[in-house]
Design a protein around this nucleic acid. Sequence first.
DNA 1: ATTTCTAAATCGGTTTTATCGATTGATTTT
DNA 2: AAAATCAATCGATAAAACCGATTTAGAAAT
Lengths: 292, 292
Amino acid sequence: MELRQLKYFLKAKELLNFTEAASALYISQSTLSQQIKQLEDELQVPLFNRIGKRITLTEAGDLFAVYAQQSINKASDGLELLKDLNNLETGKVAIGVTYALRHVVTKALILFSSQYPKIQFEIVFGTSQELIQKLNHFQLDVILTFEEIASEAHFKYLELFTSPMALVTASETPLTNKKSISLDEVSSLPLALPSSGFSTTQFINKAFEKSNLHPNVTIEINDIPTLLELIKTGKWHTILTKTTIENEEDLHAIPISGKNMTRTAMLISLKEVYEKKAVVAFLKMLMENVTT
Amino acid sequence: MELRQLKYFLKAKELLNFTEAASALYISQSTLSQQIKQLEDELQVPLFNRIGKRITLTEAGDLFAVYAQQSINKASDGLELLKDLNNLETGKVAIGVTYALRHVVTKALILFSSQYPKIQFEIVFGTSQELIQKLNHFQLDVILTFEEIASEAHFKYLELFTSPMALVTASETPLTNKKSISLDEVSSLPLALPSSGFSTTQFINKAFEKSNLHPNVTIEINDIPTLLELIKTGKWHTILTKTTIENEEDLHAIPISGKNMTRTAMLISLKEVYEKKAVVAFLKMLMENVTT
DNA sequence: ATTTCTAAATCGGTTTTATCGATTGATTTT
DNA sequence: AAAATCAATCGATAAAACCGATTTAGAAAT
């Protein structure tokens, strides 16, 4: 039993005339006759009565037609769904983001959703390591993070933009009017930093090491909103990429001077995995939004 | 898209291993690989990610699998239904009966239904002409009537039994103790007969004509139960086959003497039309019940 | 690093089968 | 009685399903 045969059968049932049905199906009458016969042989029951040259449905044919139609419908429903998927009428996008790039995603998300309201999103915040692991387990379509030290061969990387590392302070401090600040100056300030799992922290610690500086880290915390809350008190400072606090009220970012004091935001996805249309469209929108 | 390909796809999805899936499907790995590829080409979307030697489902594959499964299920449901049909688990039997043979059908019907309770019946009472027309329009599977004058080539005839024409009277009349009665005697009695559309009436009128007798018909009526009601009053007599009143209380049948004063009950069905299993089984039971 | 192993893709050839055109046989229409 | 119609059948051809062998490329083992 094949869908082709079911289609032939239903057309023959509809027209009750093999010659016309064959013509409507763009096949020869002999082909239709043979295919119907083959189907009947397989089902072990005639679907049509052959009374002379006239044909009529048998009871079996009548009953079977319902299921034949449903089988075809289900298959074409599946096809329809895939079309929708390509037209972004459905589908799910799973994105991993490091907290530093929160605003990049949210801005694009708001824009994209208004244009393609049917696409579902799952946004996962986490450290780069966590996200990369999920990406490898096919739990994420793409992750948005700052460049990693080690690049992996089965990943596809796409640069988005660069953002300077910055000392983040409350809005009103003696430092506020500075255009930039040296790493040396930073090391003397009371710092509250993200935990060591965060790549930003790893990055800045490496910089301190290189310069033989010993920063004054009094707090380590693994939740950025809480960290920012503390910074707003004015009692601590922190170090983040400038992008991280782009839309934050009551905070001020002073770029840290020196070479290599910038980080590059990247999109990371798996090579060789089929790219969902919805993901491609979303990333396109995200990138357009970022460069402007 | 063919059911074969959907089956292949689902097995590959289940095992996530083309080699094993091919083995489970009793086809070669190369065939499976090709068929999946062909399906993907038609759907215009990959169903599997080929990441190195591992394969995983794509989102499209995951979504499509649901419909693929449903399509297959519907087809196999149809197959199942046809099996049931052969096993008399379902199906409809449409029988046309002339009223004279009512008891023959009801007796068989009660017996058959207890053995095959799921079979549906449609019993149509009517004159032979009406029933034959319906048979020709495929609205009936078989009709049960007395032999027709003209036999048609596209009908299949099966004799059941013969039954004498009889004068039907109320239980208590001066005639009750007679073993038989001549047509001549009958013609002098006040008669209430079925309408001229009934074959029994046509049959008896022809007999009267042949003998140059003029029966005393005071009532013609096209409903047999009503006719019998009138006979029970004792004011009229009627002429029917003996079988007709076999199970009737308060009525008495006196066979009419003379040659050709019997009628043959027959099963009539269409030649060349597929015989429903349920119909065949029912008729078998009916015939066994009639001969005993 | 190198080798071995494994699994999917690919290639060339074979078998199967879906298809066609022509014909036949039977029925209906003219 | 002749012509037209329609499904079935036949023989031939083209399509495609299938296979075994080979290739390719990760993964695992050495």
